[in-house]
Amino acid sequence: MLATYAFFFLAFIAIFFALLVVFSKNPIHSCLYLVLTMFAIAGNYVLLNAQFLAVVQLIVYAGAIMVLFLFTIMLLNLSSENEPVKSNLIKFIATIGGGSLLLLFVMALKKTDLGPAPLMFPNPNQQGMIQNLGKVLFSEYVFPFEVISILILISLMGAVVLGRKDKKVNPINE
């Protein structure tokens, strides 16, 4: 029962801050609200008994990635004023669009029979524990795990190539 209330609370937090992320004028505020949303989501992970992901969410997402965002915002010295606002018409259309998309999703969900079984809190199944996930990751999913290294390599190169200030300017002939 407590868990149910916890879910609704976290859901409210997540949605509330997500909206603030979108509507807040200042990028730094947006960023911080996003961190809060991520906390809420991490809370949900805990509810779903996915402790490992909850931790990763906090460390990697809310920690590393969002800090990266913050750094960038600071680095570029962005203030709230220099973002021109989109016209109200666009905003209106966008809201209608987003709203109807949500409506459609809801409609699809209503049409779908997902079975009556409620989720158990705390979740009895232990898949989300580090031990289990580790076993699966390094047996069944070892191949993607290896392959993802290429992705990391690419992003490494990308960050280096794009982010570095070149001393010797010698652009390709474009």
Partner: peptide
């Protein structure tokens, strides 16, 4: 992998 590499390739001419 393909997309991220392509983003970089698209922006390779930094200047």
């Amino acid at each position: 992998i393909l997309s991220i590499a392509s983003y970089i390739l698209a922006g390779f001419n930094k200047k």
